[in-house]
């Protein structure tokens, strides 16, 4: 099968989730004697596109346009659909980032393709792709088969591995798409980055705090540990609803679903809605003074103790270990 993979970039650099998708595409291609074509969309991104070879793409397509330095749902939909049609791809892989999730359903409709969203694994059975995707925020998982000839999958970031880059660069062909005013009917006019903040959805390590911290001022403790570990700060809904932390830090069924390598839950009870969003993390640490808190049921390592004493001690020990 011919597989088109969108390697999402930001500021001219392909994101980790983009390379993960390219590598996932290569695995499918190897199982079906197929070809992986990486697609990079933006402005001045040819060099980034060549990097797709390092992660297994057989070749790359670059779509460049000055107006594509900003994201546009309508333009991306057209470009990805056209690239799939013209390259003869029957499978399209898109990272399930905030951008990918925004246009992938439209691409699927335009290609008359079925969509399996936010997949955590793809395998090939008798020549057809079986996609595994969590539902109910991870309380259950399903195996999905797309029944249409064209198929679109979005892949959850941080789950597929990009692997070690090889030294093979991909040949990059410029792919021309005619874009008219109509194709820029919706455009991003501004991006407000929370200054230098690592987002829970992208972080490899997350330190989350809950209501047991008793007040917003005590999150300094969480921030310090996060800083030492290079982690993002997360929060339970209780503290977001109380206004202690911004909403974009909320982890859980009505917040973000995360699967980092390490999730440290501090003074979080582990309500079912919270567990739903984080229980697929590779390693979970719970720090809670209540030994019966449900969070311990999903934790790999736990400390039953007072967060106000334990967290600073963990921060100090990590600092020492990491030489910071």
């Amino acid at each position: 099968m011919k597989i088109l993979v969108v390697a999402e970039q930001r500021d001219g650099k392909v994101k980790k989730a983009g390379w993960e998708a390219v590598r996932a595409g290569r695995t499918l291609a190897d199982a079906t004697r197929g070809e992986v074509i990486a697609l990079v969309i933006g402005n001045a991104i040819k060099e980034a596109a060549a990097g797709a070879g390092n992660y297994g793409a057989h070749r790359a397509l670059a779509v460049e346009h000055p107006r594509l330095s900003a994201y546009s749902t309508t333009a991306y939909t057209k470009i990805v659909a056209e690239a799939a049609k013209q390259s003869g791809a029957t499978v399209v892989l898109i990272p399930a980032t905030s951008q990918g999730k925004d246009y992938a359903p439209r691409v699927a409709v335009r290609l008359e393709a079925g969509l399996a969203a936010d997949c955590t694994s793809l395998s090939v059975d008798n020549g057809t792709i079986v996609a595994t995707r969590p539902i109910y925020a991870g309380k259950a998982v399903t195996d999905v088969r797309i029944t249409s000839p064209m198929q679109v999958f979005t892949l959850r970031p941080n789950v597929f591995t990009a692997g070690e880059p090889s030294a093979t660069a991909a040949t990059v062909d410029v792919f021309n798409v005619t874009l008219s005013e109509e194709d820029f009917r919706s455009v991003v006019t501004d991006v407000k980055q929370s200054s230098g903040k690592l987002d829970v959805a992208e972080a490899d390590i997350i330190v989350s705090g809950g209501r047991g911290l008793k007040g917003p001022e005590h999150f300094v403790m969480i921030e310090e540990l996060a800083e030492v570990l290079g982690a993002a700060v997360g929060a339970s809904r209780a503290v977001v609803d109380a206004g202690w932390r911004p909403h974009d830090e909320q982890v859980g069924q009505t917040g973000k679903t995360v699967s980092p390598s390490l999730y440290i839950a501090v003074a979080i009870s582990g309500a079912i809605q919270h567990l739903a969003g984080m229980s697929s993390s590779k390693y979970i640490v719970a720090i809670n003074k209540d030994k019966d808190a449900p969070i311990f049921q999903v934790a790999d390592y736990g400390i039953v103790g007072d967060a106000f004493e334990v967290v600073p001690a963990v921060t100090a020990a990590a600092k020492q270990l990491l030489g910071k």
Partner: peptide, 17 residues
Amino acid sequence: GKIVGTDASAAQELVRL
């Protein structure tokens, strides 16, 4: 999972693990 300890003295061991 494993309960590493019940107070701050478990921090070193947790980090090691």
